Simulated scan of single mutants.
Amino acid sequence: MSVLTGAGISTDSGIPDYRGPQGVWTRNPAAEANATIDRYLADPEVRRASWQARLVHPAWDARPNAAHGALVDLERAGLLRALITQNIDELHQRAGSAPEKVIELHGTLHRAECLSCDLITPMSEVLARVAAGEADPPCPRCGGLQKSNTISFGQSLKPEVLGAALDAARSCDLFVAVGTSLTVHPAAGLCGEALDAGARLVIVNAAPTPYDPYADQVIHEPIGEALPALVKELIDAAR
């Protein structure tokens, strides 16, 4: 089976989601507008605010929760083909998921990239410069603009990453979507790819999604409780 995770799986770890009732963009719609690459490139104030937000991002203190751990159990039982995630917090890897199983659709907050020369730098090094007073730290190699190594609105997913996710969706017998609104494409479309290939679909999410009518099972319960229970059922059924 293949699993897709979104922001909802990390809320129990203290990282707010984006579009939920208390989501970052629900409470502050301007934050979503500022998450576009065009705004980031054009407006120094947006970049400065983005660096300050990265400096205090809850991901730095977050710990994996029971839902992350359940997916590790699924992998160790030999049932997980791929773990596709929209998240940028690396909590799956920290929980024990094998890095080669994790497909990070939207990149990672733990690295910075130069938008001119593509230099990749540990985010901790760049944030140390921000903490020392650099409001918009340039690339140490070419002086270009830097941002987190994540996909902003207006940026395309890396072809090889999207290709791996499509392969995982099209080649599984069961596709499980966890903690995602299934409204952001192309990630949301992976459910359709799996269904078209004949896979069953299970959705675990607090709120309804556009794919609920097509799912074999929909679970609208707290993810930290529902996902471990679902994984136990799947492992028991495979024995």
Rank of each mutant, 00 (worst) to 15 (best):
residue 6 G to M: 09
residue 92 H to S: 10
residue 217 Q to P: 00
residue 116 S to C: 01
residue 213 P to E: 10
residue 174 L to C: 11
residue 137 P to F: 12
residue 165 A to H: 03
residue 175 F to W: 09
residue 63 R to E: 14
residue 30 A to N: 08
residue 117 C to Q: 06
residue 184 V to M: 05
residue 83 L to E: 00
residue 70 A to E: 08
residue 155 Q to K: 06
residue 57 H to Y: 08
residue 216 D to Y: 03
residue 234 L to K: 07
residue 189 G to F: 07
residue 9 I to H: 03
residue 195 L to E: 04
residue 123 M to C: 02
residue 94 R to G: 04
residue 33 A to I: 09
residue 89 D to S: 06
residue 123 M to R: 11
residue 238 A to H: 13
residue 153 F to M: 12
residue 53 A to K: 08
residue 220 H to P: 03
residue 125 E to Y: 02
residue 222 P to F: 00
residue 49 A to V: 02
residue 175 F to P: 09
residue 22 Q to H: 12
residue 116 S to I: 00
residue 130 V to C: 08
residue 236 D to L: 11
residue 216 D to E: 14
residue 60 W to A: 10
residue 16 P to D: 08
residue 224 G to C: 02
residue 173 D to N: 14
residue 218 V to A: 03
residue 114 C to H: 11
residue 196 D to E: 15
residue 160 E to I: 02
residue 21 P to K: 12
residue 49 A to R: 14
residue 38 D to T: 14
residue 95 A to E: 01
residue 29 P to R: 12
residue 142 C to G: 04
residue 21 P to D: 13
residue 96 G to R: 05
residue 227 L to W: 06
residue 197 A to I: 08
residue 224 G to I: 01
residue 87 N to H: 10
residue 73 D to Q: 14
residue 50 S to M: 08
residue 1 M to V: 12
residue 165 A to C: 02
residue 157 L to F: 03
residue 161 V to I: 15
residue 155 Q to E: 15
residue 133 G to L: 10
residue 167 D to M: 04
residue 45 E to W: 04
residue 180 T to D: 13
residue 69 G to F: 07
residue 33 A to N: 13
residue 142 C to Y: 05
residue 111 R to K: 12
residue 190 L to F: 11
residue 25 W to N: 11
residue 42 A to D: 15
residue 199 A to I: 08
residue 137 P to T: 10
residue 169 A to H: 11
residue 10 S to I: 04
residue 41 L to W: 08
residue 199 A to H: 06
residue 171 S to I: 01
residue 35 A to D: 12
residue 196 D to G: 05
residue 215 A to Q: 12
residue 2 S to H: 03
residue 163 G to S: 09
residue 12 D to E: 15
residue 57 H to F: 11
residue 201 L to Y: 09
residue 182 L to I: 12
residue 78 G to Q: 07
residue 142 C to Q: 05
residue 76 R to K: 15
residue 73 D to G: 00
residue 10 S to Y: 03
residue 214 Y to S: 12
residue 23 G to H: 07
residue 116 S to T: 13
residue 225 E to P: 06
residue 10 S to C: 11
residue 161 V to K: 03
residue 144 G to A: 03
residue 130 V to H: 07
residue 184 V to G: 13
residue 76 R to A: 02
residue 158 K to M: 06
residue 202 V to W: 13
residue 103 I to W: 02
residue 65 N to C: 06
residue 166 L to S: 06
residue 30 A to K: 13
residue 117 C to F: 05
residue 114 C to M: 04
residue 96 G to Q: 01
residue 81 R to W: 02
residue 227 L to Q: 05
residue 84 I to K: 08
residue 221 E to P: 02
residue 84 I to A: 09
residue 127 L to V: 09
residue 202 V to A: 09
residue 123 M to G: 05
residue 37 I to M: 13
residue 87 N to Y: 07
residue 191 C to A: 15
residue 58 P to R: 07
residue 5 T to L: 06
residue 81 R to A: 14
residue 74 L to R: 08
residue 165 A to N: 05
residue 149 N to Q: 12
residue 223 I to A: 03
residue 195 L to V: 04
residue 236 D to N: 09
residue 146 Q to P: 00
residue 173 D to M: 00
residue 182 L to R: 08
residue 2 S to V: 07
residue 59 A to H: 03
residue 7 A to T: 02
residue 41 L to N: 01
residue 29 P to G: 11
residue 155 Q to F: 02
residue 53 A to Y: 10
residue 110 H to L: 13
residue 51 W to D: 09
residue 170 R to F: 05
residue 88 I to H: 01
residue 58 P to T: 05
residue 217 Q to E: 15
residue 176 V to R: 09
